[in-house]
């Protein structure tokens, strides 16, 4: 099966089917997509398996999605949480 794209803040990101959104972003060189509440610091993947909640983002309007768990679907619109 050939690849597809998702959109991160207006930018197309290539995806190999079956990859998570977090993996696709990381592979595209995007290492952070969230800023923290208190200090405004950047965060991206940390634990990679859904336990640290550092990788939260918004997918098609749904907030609080763990990027490392959510498998990307064609056309997903992804924005920072």
């Amino acid at each position: 099966m050939s690849g597809f794209e998702i959109v991160f803040s207006g930018r197309p990101i290539p995806v190999t089917p079956g990859q998570t959104i977090g993996a696709a972003l990381h592979a595209a060189g995007i290492r952070s997509w969230r800023t923290t509440r208190v200090n405004g610091r950047p965060r991206g993947l940390f634990c990679g398996i859904g336990v640290c909640f550092d990788c939260l983002l918004t997918v098609n309007g749904e907030s609080g999605v763990r990027a490392c768990l959510r498998v990307a679907a064609p056309g997903d619109e992804v924005t920072p949480s």
Binding site: T20, A23, A24, F46, C52
Partner: peptide, 29 residues
């Protein structure tokens, strides 16, 4: 993974060992 805090461990690019492994095994990244 069990993790320990140290200065800078919250920087993007710091991953757990298991996290790096999961990226590779499960996503080929």
């Amino acid at each position: 993974d069990r993790v320990l805090p140290f200065p800078g461990w919250d920087l993007p690019g710091v991953l757990t060992a298991g996290g790096a492994q999961a990226l590779l095994k499960g996503n080929l990244v």
